[in-house]
């Protein structure tokens, strides 16, 4: 099955905290504000995909992506 996953490009992330503020269950931030997806980033439901999509659209650094991978 093809899985959707959310990723954060650590080279691009500048810690705006937008993703964490809107989806704290999906992202975590370290003490410098840099974000990473929680767990493996797999988007298990339509609701999760939608939430991740919103994070993509609000990240000013264009650091967040939704990718399709083998599961």
């Amino acid at each position: 099955m093809r899985l959707k996953k959310v990723t954060v490009d650590s080279e691009k992330c500048q810690g705006h905290n937008r993703c964490y503020a809107m989806a704290p269950g999906m992202f975590k931030v370290d003490e410098y504000g840099y974000a990473t997806p929680r767990g493996d980033g797999v988007l298990a439901s339509e609701a999760d995909i939608e939430l991740a999509q919103r994070a993509v659209e609000n990240c000013p650094e264009r650091a967040i992506e939704i990718i399709e991978g083998e599961g």
Partner: peptide, 8 residues
Amino acid sequence: AKNPHIAF
């Protein structure tokens, strides 16, 4: 919904 503002 879509607001990647750069106020900061």
